[in-house]
Design a protein around this nucleic acid. Sequence first.
DNA 1: TCTGCAGGTTGATCCAGATCATTCGTGGCA
DNA 2: TGCCACGAATGATCTGGATCAACCTGCAGA
Lengths: 237, 237
Amino acid sequence: MGRRPDLDWSHACRDCAVGTSAVCSTLDVTALADLRNQGSSIQLAAGQPLFHQGDPADRTFSLTSGVVKLYSVLPDGRRQVIAFHFPGEFIGFSPSEDYHCTAEAVSAATLCRFETGRFEQFARSSDELARSRHERVARDLVAAQTRAMVLGQAAARERLAHFLCDVHRRSQARPAGASGIVPLPMSRSDIAEYLGLAKETVSRELSALRATGIVRTISRNLLEIRDMERLRRLAIV
Amino acid sequence: MGRRPDLDWSHACRDCAVGTSAVCSTLDVTALADLRNQGSSIQLAAGQPLFHQGDPADRTFSLTSGVVKLYSVLPDGRRQVIAFHFPGEFIGFSPSEDYHCTAEAVSAATLCRFETGRFEQFARSSDELARSRHERVARDLVAAQTRAMVLGQAAARERLAHFLCDVHRRSQARPAGASGIVPLPMSRSDIAEYLGLAKETVSRELSALRATGIVRTISRNLLEIRDMERLRRLAIV
DNA sequence: TCTGCAGGTTGATCCAGATCATTCGTGGCA
DNA sequence: TGCCACGAATGATCTGGATCAACCTGCAGA
């Protein structure tokens, strides 16, 4: 799993599942221990919230396992899933005092928690951490802008195809193998709220993809992409 | 216009219209001159491109006057306007080698151009610049995520209302007065492509807002908000 | 083993907004 | 002054996906 040979790894982060891809991987061993020591690892059960829209944004998190969704809710109950986050990704950068959305575990998840202010200090003292953080946020920005394309222009089938490709790519990042198996720990409603569709439409379009042999359903939340070529062509973006 | 009294302003940036709100406002006078000297001010006529999707991302820009749109185009011609940018905003942060979208002036515009690599160096040496840049990108990210809410959940009328409030706020930032006048230098098609609607729908909904007295059309691209309260209630987000 | 129920799928109908078509208005130019 | 061209507004029609309504399926708990 490619651990960095220049570190002795004899501290709390030694066994981190996302050690080489997380933001903190840019820190040397002393700084890392230092940063880590301020906070702790948290475990969430599926469905448990990490923070709520409007809470003071005094924590940031590095997701080490599981899937977390960000969403916000309108007064009238309409709900938009803003993003799904996968292991190795960072959660909780906020340009304001408060979180502007709610974060909730989709499956059992573990995270590293940092106190935002101290993280900020580290960013000040470490060019590398600051640079890496900037790159991450910039990547999130591009992802969010790509979503504008999907939500603004793509038809239901295209949205779903794009979603499946995206989840495949991002969950695949870890276990290497190009298996075509896609874990879908989130419910159909979550997917629908992410794609700006009704859950019935997600169900129907998934059935359609199944009917054309592009995809096979292994179980409720496990799916196999059988024709990546065609799926990608559908995904457009 | 609130110039910072601790600077002598006796250099090229002295007359910058967005001096106090631009990223570079965090730099002291020497660093600023230094950063500025590498690049130059550019002028664009309405419709002129700043960069194209796929171009190497070796320039970043600070918009000092005018409006610029970012958009990307699908192979089949569908087009999504990703963002409109107003004076004081930054353009061209990219986490990859290439720009992922095209930038084009909507009205005549002037910008400061920085060489990305050198800007990066400055960010390394100036905590403040790095922090300010991070804050900007994080704000852009929140804006992009808010757009997901709008594009995923809002009805046509709500989208338009949200758009008008947003443009009002962001263009108002500069001339202070709470006049209710909104300049709309972009075409109806631009707005439609920004909101994921057909241009006919934008036209119709605008007429509807006019009919209910919420809004008044001064000219093709100048509009007055007559009932901000109701417009905001429509905008939802 | 049965029962309840939450999440998922499928079917029938409806409607917001797309699309196609026409008309209107304004500004540039001979 | 009249003509042209292009963007905007409006009208008529069509349709993708929402909504409403059963129904199915697999698991938890008695």
